[in-house]
Amino acid sequence: MRQLTLNDLAEKLQLDFHTYPLEAKEVTGGYVGDLLSDVMAHARDGQVWLTIQVHENIVAVALLTNVAGVIITGGRKPLPETVKRAREEGVVILSSKLPTFTLGGKIYRLLEERNALVHG
C-alpha cells in the first residue's frame, strides 16, 4: 500500500460515490469543516474534505482548494444540483453513514498506517 486513493478509502470505509474520480488521485490528508470560508482558507491540495454541507456551493470550494474529494457525513446525501455541478466540474463527491468524528478518526488511522509503511 504505497498510496492511499479515494477508491481505497471508499472500499475500506464503505463510502458511496455520487460522482467518480477520473484518475486515481492520492489522498494526502484531510480537513473537516462546515463553514465554507474556513475550508477555503485551510483545506489543501490532496486532502479529503469532510462536511455536513450538501449544497451546490461545496463544488466551487472543492474545485478552488484542489481537494481530492468531498465526503458528506452523517448519512446525508448531496442535493441533485450538487451532483450535477460536481460531475460537470470533475469534483468527486462521496458520502458516509458515519458521523464526521468517527469517519475522520478512521481516515486518520489509515493515513498513519500508510505513512508508517512508506517511511518505515
Binding site: 462546515d34 463553514l35 465554507l36 470560508s37 474556513d38 482558507a41 462536511t51 454541507q53 449544497h55 456551493n57 461545496i58
Partner: peptide, 9 residues
C-alpha cells in the same frame, strides 16, 4: 445554513 456567514470572508 448553506455554510456562509462565518464572518471569515
Amino acid at each position: 445554513e448553506m455554510g456562509f456567514g462565518a464572518g471569515m470572508g
